[in-house]
Write a protein that binds this DNA or RNA. Structure first.
Lengths: 291, 291
DNA sequence: GCCAATACCTGACTAAAGTCAGACACATGT
DNA sequence: ACATGTGTCTGACTTTAGTCAGGTATTGGC
């Protein structure tokens, strides 16, 4: 048993016993836990299918739970005008009130929990939990290959361009059309997006730039996720993809203003080479020979 | 919403979604969760009553769960020879095997969870969780007034003496008889023990040493719990008790080798005074006037 | 030896949570 | 217009988890 898992498991035990009680705020509002979870997940309104997926519910079961909530006047269930087979669920005023009560209770429980701690200890706890949260989220991020033209990939690249524009001294302009087809399997490329709770938090792609040579393109990590090792995870994944696609050399270009990225490439065994393309934004060029 | 509760609640959400799955190791062994919990709590054998108390179960319900476990050959339920109304529950070989499987699964889940993290991130996570664990446990410690002659109080004082013996240059000898009756309500005193999972982790008492003067005695915090603010919590509690008991001055003595304690008293507003007793182990004397 | 208390057992009951198979309305591609 | 597929609803069912009111065996105090 490694030290890390032992600590994790010890934490899990003390946590579920103590803070798990935060979830008790779901109780005692006159609704069974299942219905409460559905109402909670509904938030400001969402589709029935989404609820089923997120909560992993049987469609028959959800149907009944929704009727229960509807009968109590907590939500309105209506047919989606765009596709009348689907249902959309919206909380009513009473439903929102219940949600607010839920929130208040949870807040109160959290406050009571940390009440015995001094200011300094609270700060330490907050720091520790924020770190743990980041790392746990990072560990459970799923890195999935996607079509570079798909919405999550577009979203990730959009964020990437925004960041370049912010960080490059003269800004960045991706140009009017952005052809990403070189990063599809059909053309010897690939693209992967890391999702957390369905939201892209990191991404990167590979394209072919010559005989036996792949190129890593558009590697991006969300600002809020820096320091959780997502960058090197994406890099390792893309390198494995490069090998899988049959290249033995991988290249990439970057800009000096992206200091952490340059440092990461150096750490990962990349060596600087001569300019190999005419990308006007690129200032540094790297290469790594993959075994 | 304070920052601390926001972080705690954010953590709770991501945690229950991700690591909460550690508890799923209870599932899929062919036993319902309730029965599994009972088997798990049984450990190396324990009384039925203890199980009921620890898990908060109805006696009828437990009776049935135990029979279920017995029918599957996982535990042996027998009458306690000392009191034949009571039942003792012991896991059989098969039961132990099931418990081991449970442990293996949980370990595997924990390993899979941290697998995507690098060594350095794992260390950071471990540190963060250990800190969070300590503080969460400390926050949920209950500080209860008890008879100073009761087993938990005796246990705490025993640990206290052991520590003095270890830390005092010449060792420490409490003497043959230890009269603690001065710390009972009947004689204008009190004693409190901080319990975590039923185990004493800190303690301290108050006794009367003169007109309007109380004395804090035998304040102790378990080594493993240093840095979680238990010391100052016990101190605050005892000062409140001193006020409640009608004294307006509180005194205490200590030894220079207990540096953290001396520092804590200074921080809490105690001022050093002349020797006020003939305790041969005491080197420093403090007093605080309570409003 | 008797009585009250204690520890557990039994039967009867309930609510919650979920599964499954079929029914039905609507959507989509041809 | 038609076949096929999708999203939801309904009824019938199961398991789990638990409660409650008595009942029985055992114990300790008198």
């Amino acid at each position: 048993m490694s030290d890390a898992t032992a600590v994790l498991r010890r934490f899990n035990r003390s946590y579920t016993q103590r803070i798990g009680a935060l979830d008790d705020s779901f109780l005692g509002l006159g609704l069974p836990l299942g219905a409460m979870r559905v109402l909670f997940e509904t938030g400001d309104g969402c589709g029935a299918q989404e609820l089923r997926e997120r909560l992993g519910l049987d469609s028959g079961y959800l149907s009944r739970v929704l009727r229960q909530l509807e009968d109590r006047g907590l939500v309105a269930v209506e047919a989606d005008p765009a596709d009348r087979r689907r249902r959309t669920v919206t909380p009513t005023t009473a439903g929102r009130r219940t949600l607010r009560t839920l929130d208040d209770r949870s807040e109160e429980l959290a406050e009571r929990l940390i009440a015995p701690l001094t200011e300094r200890q609270r700060d330490r706890l907050t720091d520790a939990l924020a770190t743990a949260d980041l790392l746990v989220r990072a560990a459970t991020v799923s890195l999935d290959p996607v079509d570079p033209a798909s919405p999550p990939a577009r979203h990730a690249m959009g964020r990437y361009f925004d960041e370049l524009d912010r960080r490059f001294p003269g800004g960045f302009d991706p140009g009017p059309v952005d052809d990403v087809s070189s990063m599809t399997a059909a053309r010897g490329g690939t693209f992967a997006v890391a999702l957390s709770d369905g939201v892209p938090v990191a991404a990167g792609g590979v394209q072919r730039i010559g005989e036996g040579v792949g190129e890593i393109k558009r590697m991006w990590v969300d600002d809020a996720w820096r320091g959780a090792g997502l960058g090197s995870r994406v890099l390792r994944h893309l390198e494995a993809e490069v090998v899988r696609l049959g290249y033995d050399v991988v290249r990439l270009d970057t800009n000096r203003s992206l200091g952490e990225a340059v440092a990461m490439y150096a750490r990962a065994g990349y060596r600087e080479i001569e300019r190999y393309n005419d990308n006007p934004y690129a200032e540094a060029f790297f290469e790594k020979v993959l075994g």
